[in-house]
Write a protein that binds this DNA or RNA. Structure first.
Length: 305
DNA sequence: GCACATCTA
DNA sequence: CTCCTAGATGTGC
C-alpha cells in the first residue's frame, strides 16, 4: 500500500471539487481491513472505513486495549497518512459512541461503571439507532439527551417504539448484546438510479430498466448468487415511492430475464402517465450457486464477471 | 409466510 | 426531499 498524496495545496478562497476515486478508496479500505485481520480474527466491517473489532483476546497478545488501539492507529497513519478514531468498551454500542466522542484522531474508553454517566449529556440524535423518525417523536415528548432517556420507563420505550424501543432502553443503560458478526450473509443485491430529468417515455424507461437489470445481473454473477424474487422500485415526481415484487419457484440470474420480469411488473402497475424520478431493481431471496452450477459455468467458459 | 412500507446506517 | 445500498422491523393479509 503506497502512501498516496491526496491533498495538494488548495487555495483557501476557492471551492475545489475533487472527483471521487473509488478504486483508491477500495484499495485503502482493503489495506486497513487487513490490519484489523492482523489484530483479531473476529472483526465486523460496517463500511469502507469502519469496523468493530473484538479484541478481548487478540493476535498481538496485548491485554491492554488502549495499546491495541494505539497500534492500529499508528500503523494506519504511518502507512496511509489517514487518521482514525477508536472507541473502546464492553459492547458495540458503547464502542461506537466512544469512537464518535473524539475525532478525528482520538481514543476514548468507556468503562462499565461510567457508561450511564457517559451517555447522560449526549444529545439523542448522536445515539446509534436513533434516526430521524425516532428523534422527532422523542423531541415531541420533550426528550433531548441520554439523561432524559435514562429517566424513561422500559414500558414507555416499548409501547412507543416496539422492538427498537426495547433495544434502545437497554442501550441507554449501557446494555447491548449485539455480537461482532464476522461474515454476514448477503440477503439482497440491487441497484437504483435517480434521474436528473424525470422519465416519461416508455422507451426511456425500458432503456433504464435494461441498464439496471444489466448491473444487477453482473453483480449476481460476480458474487455467484441467484435469487427467486425480483423487486421493482419506483419514485414519481411527487416523491411517492412504491415497490412491487414477483417471486418465482425457480431462480433468476440472467440479466435478460431480470429485465423481462421488471418490465412485466412495471406494465402491470399501469402508470405510464407518471413522471418517474427513480427506478430500482433488486433481487432478494438469494442463494449461492451450487457447486454444480458454478462448475458448469466455468466449464462452458461462460463464468466470471 | 409473503408483500409492502418505513426506518436506520 | 443529496443519492445509493442494504438490513431490520411493523403491518396487513
Amino acid at each position: 500500500m503506497p502512501a498516496q498524496q491526496a491533498i495538494e495545496l488548495i487555495p483557501r478562497d476557492k471551492l475545489v471539487i475533487v472527483p471521487p476515486n473509488f478504486e483508491l478508496y477500495r484499495k485503502t479500505s482493503d489495506y486497513i481491513h487487513s490490519i484489523f485481520g492482523e489484530v483479531t480474527g473476529n472483526y465486523q466491517s460496517v463500511a469502507l472505513d469502519e469496523a468493530y473489532l473484538d479484541v478481548t483476546v487478540n493476535k498481538l497478545n496485548e491485554p491492554n486495549t488502549l495499546k491495541v488501539a494505539n497500534y492500529i492507529q499508528q500503523k494506519i497513519v504511518r502507512e496511509t497518512h489517514l487518521t482514525c478514531s477508536v472507541g473502546i468498551s464492553y459492547n458495540k454500542f458503547l464502542a461506537k459512541m466512544a469512537s464518535d466522542y473524539r475525532k478525528p484522531f482520538g481514543r476514548t474508553i468507556i468503562l462499565g461503571q461510567y457508561a450511564e454517566d457517559f451517555l447522560r449529556p449526549i444529545p439523542i440524535e448522536k445515539f446509534n439507532g436513533i434516526g430521524k423518525a425516532m428523534q422527532k417523536k422523542l423531541h415531541d415528548m420533550d426528550i433531548y439527551t441520554g439523561g432524559d432517556l435514562q429517566n424513561l420507563d422500559q414500558d414507555v420505550f416499548i409501547n412507543t417504539f416496539g422492538k427498537m424501543g426495547y433495544v434502545m432502553f437497554r442501550r441507554v443503560h449501557g446494555i447491548d448484546d449485539a455480537p461482532v458478526e464476522g461474515h454476514r450473509v448477503r440477503k439482497s443485491i440491487g441497484r437504483e438510479r435517480t434521474y436528473n430529468q424525470n422519465l416519461v417515455l416508455n422507451e426511456q424507461i425500458e432503456k433504464e430498466l435494461k441498464f439496471l437489470a444489466d448491473l444487477v445481473g453482473k453483480d449476481l454473477k460476480k458474487q455467484r448468487q441467484h435469487g427467486k424474487t425480483v423487486v421493482l422500485k419506483l419514485r414519481n415526481s411527487d416523491f411517492e415511492t412504491v415497490t412491487k415484487r414477483m417471486t418465482f419457484q425457480d431462480y433468476v440470474q440472467d440479466k435478460g430475464e431480470i429485465y423481462r420480469i421488471a418490465k412485466e411488473i412495471y406494465d402491470k402497475l399501469d402508470i405510464s402517465d407518471q413522471k418517474i424520478r427513480l427506478l430500482g431493481i433488486t433481487l432478494t431471496n438469494l442463494d449461492p450457486l451450487s457447486y454444480e452450477e458454478v462448475s458448469l459455468k466455468l466449464f462452458t467458459s461462460e463464468g466470471n464477471k
